[in-house]
Simulated assay, not measured.
Amino acid sequence: MVRVKVKITCKSCGERFVLRGTKERGQIQTGFKQCVCDHVHFLIEEMEAL
């Protein structure tokens, strides 16, 4: 398990969030469920290791 910095962009309203998450077996987990606009479709990008 590796800690990573993640940028999340909502595909509906364009709101951006920067969070910390964990990367295990190629999958990133942040606990982020939905945007403030109530949409659940977003793009997750890994920024850098912490």
Rank of each mutant, 00 (worst) to 15 (best):
E15K: 15
K7I: 08
I8K: 00
K33T: 13
E45V: 05
C35K: 09
D38S: 13
E46N: 04
F42Q: 06
V4C: 04
E48I: 06
K11N: 13
F42H: 07
M47S: 09
R3Q: 12
F17D: 02
I8C: 06
F42R: 02
G21A: 01
R3W: 09
L19T: 05
V18F: 08
T22V: 10
E45P: 03
E46H: 05
C13S: 05
Q27W: 10
R25V: 03
T22R: 08
K23H: 06
D38L: 14
K5M: 06
K23N: 09
L43F: 10
I8M: 06
I44K: 12
K5T: 05
T30C: 01
Q34P: 06
V6W: 00
D38I: 12
R20G: 12
S12L: 14
E46C: 09
V40A: 14
R3C: 04
V40C: 12
K5V: 08
I28V: 15
H41K: 15
V2Q: 10
L43P: 01
R3K: 15
K11S: 10
C10A: 02
I8Y: 01
M1E: 07
K11Y: 11
R3M: 11
A49H: 08
K5E: 10
K5R: 13
G14E: 03
G31E: 04
D38C: 14
G31V: 01
V18R: 04
H39L: 05
I8V: 13
L50F: 07
R25K: 13
C35T: 09
E46P: 02
E46D: 08
V6P: 00
K33R: 10
L50C: 14
A49R: 15
E45W: 02
R16T: 15
K11G: 07
K5Q: 09
F32A: 02
D38G: 07
Q34T: 13
F17G: 02
R20F: 14
V40F: 10
F17Q: 04
I28H: 01
E24C: 03
G21I: 00
R25T: 04
Q27T: 10
K7N: 08
K23P: 02
L50W: 08
F42D: 02
R25P: 01
C35M: 06
R3H: 10
R20C: 12
C35S: 07
E15C: 07
T9K: 11
L19E: 08
K5I: 08
